[in-house]
């Protein structure tokens, strides 16, 4: 497994246990989603992978090695993270934000080519290259956040609610990009409120219930056979037209 979260417990403050014993795995080349209600602990799990919040107990390994953002292992391991609030530097220009995506890279020519590739993927970023990123719309900022994350040439891309609060046309665009990245072979762990869209595009989906307990895991069809999951989601995942892109 590329990413292995084993029996993770994550605590906020002295008494709030946000995640209790979550275990999940992501294989190389997979698109895996985490779905569940607000406060289920999905985003906390991504933060724990990045080392933004510490583990109380349990283990997170990437390709067999522990992840720890404080020692920059996540950057060295090429794990890219797009947080829920997008993490855009609003006072920097679009171009400066993109340059920061490759801040650790020494191959400057290849980086320039990668920036060019992302500008082709997200043409709006070329249009606003010199513009302050804080002036972009929410959808444009999300495209910038994803483009910046891709400049690390990630082995694992963590996307936290990338379509939250966006217009339907931008939601379609973001999901199209996610599917295309998956087809290019990128490994993606996606946290998504839109359970139907997540089930449609994912190879496997974890259904997470507060506080960070995995209710079930599998394809949409497999999850549809789990009564607890159907009861929790309020619909049967097997009704979702899923995984059409999977080879």
């Amino acid at each position: 497994m590329l990413l292995d979260i084993d029996n993770a417990y994550i605590q906020y403050g002295p008494s709030v246990m946000a995640v209790q014993g979550a275990s999940l795995q992501v294989a190389e080349g997979e698109l895996v989603s985490l779905i569940g209600q607000n406060g289920a602990g999905k985003s906390t799990l991504l933060k724990a992978v990045m080392g933004v919040v510490p583990l109380h107990s349990g283990a997170i390994t990437f390709d067999g090695s522990p992840t720890d953002a404080r020692s920059f292992s996540t950057v060295r391991q090429r794990i890219s993270y797009v947080p829920e609030d997008r993490g855009i530097f609003t006072k920097l220009t679009v171009g400066e934000n993109l340059r920061l995506g490759g801040v650790t890279r020494r191959d400057k020519k290849a980086l320039a080519a990668d920036i060019e590739r992302e500008l082709e993927r997200f043409p709006v970023l070329r249009k606003y290259w010199g513009k302050t990123a804080g002036l972009l719309s929410g959808g444009e900022q999300q495209q910038l956040a994803i483009a910046r994350a891709l400049l690390l040439r990630p082995r694992l891309l963590l996307l936290d609610e990338p379509t939250l609060g966006l217009a339907p046309i931008i939601v379609d665009l973001i999901f199209d990009v996610v599917v295309r990245l998956r087809e290019e072979g990128m490994t993606i762990l996606l946290v998504e409120q839109n359970a139907v869209r997540a089930l449609e595009v994912s190879d496997r989906t974890y259904v997470v219930q507060a506080p960070g307990r995995v209710l079930g895991c599998g394809s949409a069809a497999e999850l549809g056979k789990l009564p607890a999951v159907v009861d929790y989601l309020g619909f049967s995942p097997s009704d979702v037209r899923g995984n059409s892109h999977v080879r």
Partner: peptide
């Protein structure tokens, strides 16, 4: 300078991108 400004705005995110 770009790293300093990014760190001044959101140090956590800057660190996630590899700003030391």
């Amino acid at each position: 300078g770009i790293q300093l400004r990014a760190a001044a705005e959101n140090f956590q995110m800057a660190k996630c991108l590899g700003v030391r």
